[in-house]
Every structure is written in C-alpha cells, then in structure tokens.
Amino acid sequence: MAVLDVNVVAADQQVWAGEAKRVIARTSDGEIGILPGHEPVLGVVADGEARILTTSEETLRVQADGGFLSVENNRVIIAADQAELL
C-alpha cells in the first residue's frame, strides 16, 4: 500500500521526516485528513495540532503554529513558523 512521505519543517530546522499512513492537520476551515493518494492541496495551517499516524502505527502529535501544508504525489509538507513534537 502506498504511504505518505511526510516532512514537518519549522522556520529554522527540520522537525520530523518519515513515512506515514495518515496525516490530520488543522486548516483555517477545519481539520483536513490526508490519506495516500490524496489530490494535490495547498492549505493554510491554523495554530493547532497535527496528528501523524506513522507506518509503525504510532501517533505523533506536532504543535504547528501558523504556516502551510502542501500535498502532492503522496508527499506531505507541513511548513510552520514554529513547530515541535509533543
């Protein structure tokens, strides 16, 4: 099964990179869930928590404050002004 290649970057460093089965992020319109094969999206990320379900069934929680999210060809990039793993 296809997996998502996820990158979480903050303004001054890379926070997390790895493979995931599912990513849930908070955009200004509400939560957006991304599974492999999702259509290309560019979205504004609202302050809040993103949840990443990794391929090893772990749930990572990332606090991402302001930024954007891009999805294309199973590559997910969450770029935030400030981001940290919870």
Binding site: S28, E39, V41, L42, G43, G66, F68, L69
Partner: peptide
C-alpha cells in the same frame, strides 16, 4: 506543478504564504 486544490482559497493561501 500539479493542479492544486487551495484551502480555503488561492488568495488566502497567497496572503499567508507571501509574508512568510
């Protein structure tokens, strides 16, 4: 570039992206 879906809209995305 693929055809992106913009959340919530292209203008809003640009508004938030450009200053950054």
């Amino acid at each position: 570039f693929p055809l992106y879906e913009f959340e919530p809209s292209a203008e809003a995305v640009l508004d938030s992206l450009l200053p950054r």
